[in-house]
């Protein structure tokens, strides 16, 4: 198993959003998170990525962690496409960026500063970053925002190749990627019913002490 989530409860700004979320991801599997705006898809992904502590529950990641891609692409405007990508590759201990540039069709843009790219091209570069991380588990938050139909297909192909290579992907998205093999998890049934206690929750001991 690449990812095991058990009885996970997450909160945003002290308000419990989701509770009792449980699922597993095996190599070759993709899971699409769905649910209305504000249900906690981003918060759930950030908790799984380790950016915020969960209120409760357990997250088991692979030993080398996961590649997380949030709403922002983490690009530096004054660096070129190739430099941005090479930087992230080296952070993840990789060298080769040519495959990622080819997979996201960035070859013609490689020497352009990232500030001159369109929103969709920036997004493609942000997704190319996933390919250079070499991580088996991808955590994707709205990966297709501002992509055109052709780019969405290109991204779907990249995800499919990643799954075929034994990787797994967990993504929050509203559009249909055309990934037949992906399972869908509707988060609506996991909406938190009441205040959940725990570190960072609204009944935090710190707040209680000063109430």
């Amino acid at each position: 198993m690449l990812l095991i989530v058990e009885d996970l409860a997450v909160a945003r700004g002290g308000i419990a959003l989701l509770e009792a979320v449980a699922f597993t991801l095996a190599p070759g599997q993709a899971l699409i998170l769905r649910g209305p705006n504000g249900i906690g898809k981003t918060t759930l992904l950030r908790a799984i990525a380790g950016l915020q502590p969960p209120l409760r529950g357990r997250v088991d990641l692979p030993a080398d962690g996961a590649a997380y891609a949030g709403h922002a692409d983490g690009l530096k405007a004054t660096l070129t496409v190739a430099e941005n990508l090479a930087f992230w590759a080296r952070i993840y201990g990789q060298r080769d960026t040519a495959a990622a540039i080819a997979a996201m069709d960035l070859g013609a843009l490689a020497d352009r500063p990232a500030q001159n790219l369109s929103a969709g091209q920036k997004r493609r570069l942000g997704l190319a970053r996933l390919l250079v991380t070499g991580r088996m588990l991808w955590l994707l938050d709205e990966p297709t925002v501002s992509l055109d139909a052709a780019s969405v297909a290109m991204f779907a192909a990249a995800v499919r190749a990643h799954l075929a290579a034994g990787g797994a992907a967990l993504m929050a998205t509203h559009i249909d990627l055309g990934l037949a093999e992906a399972a869908t998890l509707d988060l609506s049934p996991f909406r938190a019913k009441g205040p959940v206690t725990g570190p960072g929750g609204i009944a935090d001991p710190f707040d209680a002490a000063f109430a």
Binding site: L51, G65, A67, D73, G74, K76, I91
Partner: peptide, 14 residues
């Protein structure tokens, strides 16, 4: 923080 690099660095292996 603004461009999201900090989130990505926090989840990176360093």
């Amino acid at each position: 923080r603004e461009d999201g690099s900090l989130d990505l660095l926090a989840t990176a292996p360093i």
